[in-house]
Design a protein around this nucleic acid. Structure first.
Length: 472
DNA sequence: CTATGGCACGGATT
DNA sequence: AATCCGTGCCATAG
């Protein structure tokens, strides 16, 4: 589905236009499903095998030297856009080529289990201790429980109830959320350590329980809608989950960095797009991969076309329709890819600082502006931006719409001010500080930003300085 | 009395 | 046309 050489892709018919639009809003995951559906019901459509670079396995949009495998792919000054093959949608372990550029988190040292046991010693009877030791030793690298509790109960010949009790205990102790069934449960267990009566906590719980997928997609608007809550409340809860809880209990305990270098795509959703830095040449072009799930390109099956000539009466009609449908579909996909590509090139060149240096450097840029430059209708850009997630070089996954968050840089600055403050500053003071830096924001607005970032008010900040203590 | 959050209005963006 | 965003005003918690 990747031929970009073809420049004659103007939306000629309204059908074409309509379908292109409907494809554009889809996330890559959804697009893949759509393609699969189309492939299976339309024999005129064909998926041609991979034409990607034999070295780096990336299907290329353009030609020129590839910075990674130095094959010939085209590169514009600031961006190179690739479309990755199948592997890219699988969990991180199968990022074959790019993997060597990522620093993996070191595996958790073995003594994690010991440390936990020590903490539990007081609360455990001797036979519980044995069970705890067994459980701890069977955890995987991330601190998750591999086996079902019932299975553990059986192998140790103890009642399920006892297993459950020990598990609950373990989950409370220092790396909180340890020995749970997965990221979601780990987060929930950690949530238990906070004051359940706070509305923001119960909101966070609700999100984790019912809207985990949506959280991964960072689709705050949808979440707010289904929960019937204000969006900023949801953001606040999400920010809280992100900052104060850790989906990888084992890593939080030993991890030097806060952000895992290799985010688990099952937790925070596989991104649709990934931007990475060529480490060999940090000043050079940014690498943009627009993931697809098919290693190859889509086209109208030429055999089918030939066969049409030999078709008999009743077949001809149906087959012709298939052909037209297939060719339309291919055109639409091309159109979609083309738009996405141009959009990303735009973003990468205009927002390079933001991508590399963080939220504060996001410069104001509206969808309308991009639409104007690229020469498409602004609703096209809106659709292109919607429902897409993007992985930054640092490993952070953000919604593509973040690029158009007008207040992001100011919020980031506020966050920094609060972090480095000596004494809790009031919103008014923060507002004035910002004004000295040339950022004009009303006091009321500072308050709103604080809320979005999940920062407590000045008064509360004074009291709660250290993280919530773990109960013994 | 001061700092903050809620509501609502108008202008910009999508 | 619908939605988002910054802001002012006002009630109220601290």
């Amino acid at each position: 589905m990747l031929q970009y050489q073809d420049q004659s892709m103007r939306p000629l018919t309204t059908a074409h236009l309509a379908q292109t639009m409907s494809l554009l809003v889809l996330s890559n995951q959804e697009l893949q499903e759509k393609i699969d559906a189309e492939l299976s019901e339309n024999p005129a459509l064909e998926l041609v095998e991979d034409h990607s670079c034999p070295t780096c396995h990336r299907q290329l949009v353009s030609k020129g030297p590839c910075p990674i495998c130095s094959a010939k792919h085209e590169q514009n000054q600031d961006s190179i856009v690739f479309v990755s093959p199948k592997e890219s949608l699988r969990p991180s372990g199968s990022f074959n080529h790019s993997e060597e550029f990522l620093d993996r988190e070191p595996a958790a040292p073995e003594n994690l289990g010991l440390s936990v046991l020590k903490q539990l010693a007081a609360d455990l009877k001797t036979d519980d201790r044995e069970l705890a030791a067994y459980i701890l030793s069977s955890l995987d690298e991330d601190g998750y429980l591999q086996d079902h509790p019932a299975l553990i109960a059986r192998t140790n010949r103890v009642p399920l109830q006892q297993v459950q009790r020990v598990l609950d205990l373990i989950a409370q102790v220092d790396p909180p959320g340890l020995a749970t069934m997965g990221p979601r449960q780990a987060l929930l267990a950690q949530l238990n350590q906070y004051d359940q009566r706070l509305p923001s906590i119960s909101l966070a719980r609700e999100i984790l329980e019912h809207l985990f997928k949506e959280l991964g997609k960072r689709d705050f608007d949808a979440m707010a809608k289904t929960l019937d809550v204000k969006v900023h409340k949801v953001r606040q809860a999400a920010a809280f989950i992100h900052d104060s809880l850790n989906p990888y209990p084992a890593r939080s305990f030993w991890g030097s960095g806060h952000q895992p270098a290799v985010p688990d795509p099952n937790v925070y959703h596989t991104p649709d797009i990934k931007i990475s830095l060529n480490l060999l040449e940090p000043q050079g072009a940014l690498l943009v991969e627009i993931f697809t799930s098919h290693a190859g390109w889509l086209r109208v099956n030429p055999m089918f076309q030939k066969a049409l000539a030999t078709a008999n009466g009743s077949q001809t009609e149906a087959w012709t329709e298939h052909l037209e449908r297939a060719s339309l579909f291919v055109k639409c996909i091309q159109q979609r890819n083309n738009t996405m590509r141009r959009l990303m090139e735009m973003l990468v060149t205009r927002q390079r600082k933001f991508i590399l240096e963080g939220d504060r450097h996001l410069s104001p840029l509206t969808r309308a502006k991009i639409a104007e430059i690229i020469g498409v209708h602004e609703s096209t850009i809106s659709r292109a931006v919607a429902h897409k997630s993007l992985e930054l070089p640092g490993g952070r996954i953000i919604p593509l719409s973040r690029f158009f968050d007008r207040s992001l840089s100011v919020r980031d600055r506020i966050k920094e001010i609060v972090e480095s403050e000596i004494r809790p500053l009031t919103d008014d003071e923060i507002s004035m500080m910002l004004e000295e830096e040339g950022i004009k924001v009303a006091r009321r607005t500072v308050a709103k930003y604080r809320a979005i970032e999940g920062i407590l008010t000045a008064r509360l900040r004074k009291k709660i300085l250290q993280p919530i203590a773990v109960r013994a």
